[in-house]
Design a binder for these strands. Structure first.
Lengths: 193, 193
DNA sequence: TATATTCCTTAACATATGTTAATGTCCTGG
DNA sequence: CCAGGACATTAACATATGTTAAGGAATATA
């Protein structure tokens, strides 16, 4: 478990005191996932936060057997069923490792308890949500205002290398199109260039 | 300015102390908007939070002259350019009153300063972001997994009465379709029933 | 009251994307 | 080494939705 790495990720979002860090570390549980293993399944109740240290995780909705990829998590981000934790309801989303992955897991309720003792941890939580919101809004603007071709190119910039590591139908789902359509777009791009 | 109403909205999200409330009130500036007036224009720099007390406000992106409505704000919510405030960048979004509206406005930076003195205000901010995130996620799931007809019906449930108050092309834009298509959907719904 | 403006509806047409299906390649496990 | 499965590509076809255009109702303005 790369403590130094985790510390650097967190304190880049909001500075944390040595005391808070000491208490926080106590909550950490390392976790390994094989390719295609689930971190969280739709409908399950959860009480854990995750920080990805290696690999890739996707989040997706499932409606009538169809999966809709919402986003991909890369190392240094938090593949965590936030809404389920915050509202204490079963998760509407599934989280699945697309590559062999390593994470640290910690209890959300215990983390929350630490807020009382360490104000900086509450500020950290606020900082995480703020970052999330900013990213999300940027992403939304792209998805709504651009066509699929443009969004495909933005995907390649946003997640460099990822394209080579996962099947294209996951990317298509992320873009809101069929794999066939993505294939057409790719063919078009090659030809145009 | 309906202080009691504002207090009830805020303290429903997170309890605030009388001292914090006293300091917070000092920041409030009432504001009136006519129909079609702008609260925030795309590209402008901002330093204000808003709480809507009466009327309706829309947020939208603008790309190459096309407007894409992101959502509508109803009384008791915060038509605030969050990303612009948090990242201190020009707003990518515009906020416009669709009906004569009343708001209270307060300085984001002064609000933030109060966090030091009143921890409950930082918790309030966290609570607001949490609520926002939960709503947003639910909305996203709908938009991605449902067809436009279903989303139109969800719109009518989510914003009762609103349909009668604003032009249909704003609803169409919110649904991600053309006004013509919305018209077809409406015709179909009448016929089916 | 008459006229202009805004907005909704409908139709005809164009187009992009989904669907189904066939083919080929690569990779894996027996 | 071979057979099967997973995945990507391509084509033919179906379909939903956008586009353009016209007409009409409602509302606002002179």
């Amino acid at each position: 478990m790369k403590k130094a790495y985790i510390f650097s990720v967190l304190s880049a979002i909001h500075p944390i005191t040595v005391e808070a860090w000491a208490d926080l570390q106590e909550l950490f549980v390392p976790q390994q996932l094989n390719r295609n293993d689930y971190l969280v399944r739709e409908g399950s109740r959860v009480n854990s936060c995750y920080l990805l240290t290696e690999g890739v995780v996707r989040v997706f909705y499932n409606k009538e057997g169809n999966e809709y990829n919402k986003t991909f998590f890369m190392p240094g981000t938090f593949p965590t069923p936030l809404t389920a934790l915050l509202s204490d309801t079963p998760s509407s989303l599934s989280f699945q490792a697309l590559l062999p992955s390593q994470l640290i897991k910690f209890s959300y309720s215990e983390f929350r308890v630490l807020f009382e003792k360490h104000r900086c941890l509450e500020s950290l939580m606020l900082g995480i949500l703020e970052q999330l919101w900013i990213k999300k809004e940027r992403h939304d603007i792209h998805m709504v205002t651009n066509d699929a071709t443009t969004n495909y190119m933005i995907f390649r910039q946003t997640f460099p290398e990822l394209e080579k590591l996962i099947p294209q139908y996951h990317i298509a789902s992320y873009l809101g199109i069929t794999p066939i359509q993505l294939s057409r777009i790719r063919a078009q791009l090659v030809q145009t260039r």
